[in-house]
Design a protein around this nucleic acid. Structure first.
Lengths: 130, 130
DNA sequence: TTATCAATTGCAACATTGTTGCGTTTAATT
DNA sequence: AATTAAACGCAACAATGTTGCAATTGATAA
């Protein structure tokens, strides 16, 4: 079986996630790491972390992709059925762990995963009256 | 004010949408048009059609972007708050006009737009037992 | 501690997707 | 038919993500 290693780069990426309250793009992570490792390496680390279920990937309405740490509640099967909020002003993306949509599906569909993203103004930007 | 023109390319793009039951990517449209016009022109036509509220843009979980015709119900303000289904097997994306999620937001957020995408197996692929 | 070896990395090269500037063409109007 | 701004083609660029391969390194066993 495949073993996974704790490398300096992987640890550094995890620290960046730990420090951040919002989801991060590949570019943002790369900048924060300040050339500690190659661009490609970050892509590969992100792939591994997703596989290990440590982070999850978020596709935004505008086509940008971000990543955020998973908040496991010790579920056996970990499904990211929470919502994400994308601020149109500051472009920050946050996980709304408490917001879970309810919906009724037509028959004959098998749903494995859902992606629920809301966009608008986050509390910070709403208060700034922009 | 800006006027918008009916060009051969725009008409052709609209026909492609008309014929398709599923959402289409830029690449898929380009292929179907078979070099009738430039790649860039298609991007510009799509932009215009979105502005005119004729089509809408769908960002998929895997980062791919597709476009689909809008099904107006003569609302004054047209909001795309319906769900999209993305099949993991055939990669087709369809609008589920009838599926509208209900959810409760924390205070202090202003929601302007929502994106609700479900992925799994569509009826076709589910029946094929894949 | 050292040898081993697969996992990981860096680099270069490439693919895809989307954007911009600019000179030319064309649809709609007079 | 003349006008003119919208739309177009082309070339060039930017951003994002992928792949192959040789070199490096973390974890394990000797």
């Amino acid at each position: 079986m495949k073993t996974t290693r704790n490398t300096a780069a992987k640890t550094a990426v995890l620290e960046v996630f730990e420090k951040s309250k919002t989801a991060l793009s590949h570019t943002e992570i790369h900048k924060q790491l300040n050339d500690l490792c190659d661009r490609v390496t970050i892509y590969r680390i992100l792939d591994r972390l997703i596989n290990e279920d440590v982070i999850h990937k978020i596709s935004n309405l505008d086509g940008t992709v971000k990543y955020a740490k998973c908040n496991h509640s010790h579920q056996r099967v970990h499904i990211h059925n929470h919502a994400h909020f994308s601020c149109e002003n500051c472009h920050e993306i946050t996980c709304l762990e408490t917001v879970k949509p309810s919906y009724i599906m037509p028959h004959n569909y098998k749903v494995n995963e859902i992606n629920f993203t809301l966009s608008g103004l986050c509390p910070n930007c709403l208060n700034s009256n922009i």
